[in-house]
Simulated assay, not measured.
Amino acid sequence: MVNVEDISFGYLLSDVTLLFRKHFDRRAVKFGLTRAQWRATKMLYRRPGLRQTELAEFLEMEPIAVGRVIDRLQAAGFVERRPDPKDRRAWRLYTTEQAHEVVDDMERIAKDLRIDASTGISCEEMMQMTAVLTRIKENLQALDEAEQPMTEAGN
């Protein structure tokens, strides 16, 4: 009898993620955006007015790297920096109308890819897979939370 802990799924998850990214990048290449630029644009589209440090947290990137991404997006006309009314040293980030058009196109690309990737899979199967992956994610996040006090105590 096979036990849950004997089923190796980490590499499969990684392979699926890499393949999904590869196919998305191929379809989205016409927009000239890197994956990091696309992720930043999408996040700002959904959460306008973020500060660079907040965006870095959401994207799980270093603030300096996000700054370079924003510089390129601003130069390309996708993002604008506006002064923060509460902090003269800070900037708030907003997507432009040009970005809104691209976000809509990118969302269509993502939806079409999901359709292609889920061929032969029922909605019920997809919902079950999503529920299981969500539980795995929650279990791993709980490990992070359990380890955090030990890490902080060691400093």
Rank of each mutant, 00 (worst) to 15 (best):
V2K: 08
V2Y: 12
N3Q: 13
V4I: 15
V4M: 07
V4P: 02
I7T: 10
I7P: 01
S8M: 14
G10C: 08
Y11N: 15
Y11A: 15
Y11E: 15
L12S: 15
L13K: 14
S14Y: 12
D15W: 12
D15H: 10
V16A: 12
V16L: 08
V16Q: 03
T17V: 00
T17R: 06
R21D: 12
K22M: 04
H23L: 07
D25H: 08
R26Q: 13
R26Y: 05
R27W: 01
A28V: 06
A28E: 03
V29E: 13
K30G: 03
K30A: 05
F31I: 01
L33G: 01
T34H: 01
A36I: 02
A36N: 07
A36P: 03
Q37S: 06
W38S: 08
R39P: 00
A40N: 03
A40G: 05
T41Y: 00
T41M: 14
T41H: 02
K42S: 11
M43I: 13
L44V: 05
Y45V: 05
Y45I: 08
R46D: 14
R46I: 00
R47F: 03
P48S: 12
G49M: 09
T53E: 10
T53W: 03
T53H: 09
E54W: 04
L55C: 08
A56I: 00
E57P: 01
F58D: 06
L59S: 04
L59P: 02
E60D: 12
M61R: 06
E62V: 09
P63S: 11
P63F: 07
P63V: 07
A65S: 13
V66S: 02
V66C: 08
R68W: 15
V69N: 00
I70S: 01
D71K: 11
Q74E: 15
Q74L: 04
G77M: 08
V79T: 03
R82N: 08
P83Q: 12
D84C: 10
K86Q: 14
R89A: 15
R89I: 10
A90F: 08
A90V: 10
R92I: 12
R92H: 08
L93V: 08
T95K: 00
E97A: 14
H100N: 04
H100D: 12
E101R: 10
E101N: 13
E101I: 13
V102I: 10
V103T: 04
D104Y: 12
D105S: 14
D105P: 02
M106Y: 09
E107C: 03
R108W: 05
R108P: 01
R108C: 08
R108A: 12
I109K: 01
I109N: 01
A110C: 07
K111I: 13
D112N: 09
D112A: 10
I115G: 04
I115C: 02
I115P: 03
A117S: 07
A117I: 06
G120A: 03
I121R: 04
S122F: 04
C123S: 09
E125N: 09
M126P: 01
M126V: 04
Q128D: 13
A131S: 09
V132R: 05
V132Y: 07
L133N: 09
T134G: 14
K137Y: 10
K137D: 04
N139M: 07
Q141P: 00
Q141G: 09
Q141N: 11
Q141A: 12
A142N: 06
A142V: 02
L143F: 05
D144P: 10
E145F: 09
E145D: 11
E145W: 06
E145M: 12
E147V: 15
E147W: 09
Q148M: 13
P149Q: 03
M150R: 11
A153V: 06
